[in-house]
Amino acid sequence: MRHFAYSRPATFDEACHNAGHTRFLAGGTNLIDLMKSDVERPAHVIDIGSLPMHHIEDQPDGGLRLGALVTNADTAAHPLVVERYPLLASAILAGASPQIRNMATNGGNLNQRTRCHYFYDPAMACNKRSPGTGCAARGGRNRIMAVLGTSDACIATFPSDMCIALAALNATVNLHGPDGERTVGVRDYHCLPGETPWRDNILQPGEIVTAIDLPPAPFGPHHTYLKVRDRLSFAFAIVSVAVGLCMKDGRIGRGSIALGGMGTKPWCVPEAEALLDDRPPSHSLFRDVAGRLLHGATADRDNAAKIRLAPRVIERALWQAVSGTPQSQTDKTIR
């Protein structure tokens, strides 16, 4: 870890108007690790813990606003989240460990960085960490890397579970920056690596995530978060699927689906979701949806298993949602 300046501003204006190489500190479960590993080297750490973003608020439209500083644990346990967005609670509980979820915040989860081994190890070439050095993950040990949305420059997986549910729920991200406030759909929040893999998301310098807005979710019990990982707890997804379905008389009215562990960002394909519109559930339909979601998936050296596994996980998740029996995150049996 290198020397850095530290401040804990009380207002957004103070927090946003800082020149130079700064990083916001929320729960610190990701940032501090990266600083210890010499991956992040901010000159100035701005602790945003005093900013007023600690609440979950009911919205007039029946939605919810999740403050950026509410912890993942508190969010998953909040009665309104449990009642209206069990899919989100489930995805959060599928991630990390209780200790980490107690520290981790919603804003931090959205902005967490990839777990690519090569990104984490400053001895290795990495375009995301050190632009222009190359991508050591290509041709390397990359069974955890992405197969969708990759570029020549970077194949890093976006690792969050929570954000996969947020994408399926079509959440919106509220930002406060030096030039004022704006909102962005969560599906547009993260960037594809393209030629600029160092940009994880659309956040501009000085911009802070203040809250995440959830629109009303009409899924009832027809949702699930299904995560396949290397061990039964405390591991990032190899493949995960968040699904919400509006069911009517045994037919799917409309569906929302996002993939985790597979893409360089939460992976959503509107054309795949459109296939579900007003259709009865069937194996062939779900196979088509999976095929459409995985269209263009490309494996590198070690991660072809993801492409083999994903269709089966997608189909199972869709059936779980259809039958209104979402995956439990404590009983590890996959129903």
Partner: peptide
């Protein structure tokens, strides 16, 4: 070099 050199990525069994 062994690349998964931390407990997040070198998986030992958990209670679950």
């Amino acid at each position: 070099r062994f690349m998964n050199h931390n407990f997040a990525e070198y998986h030992i069994p958990t209670h679950a």
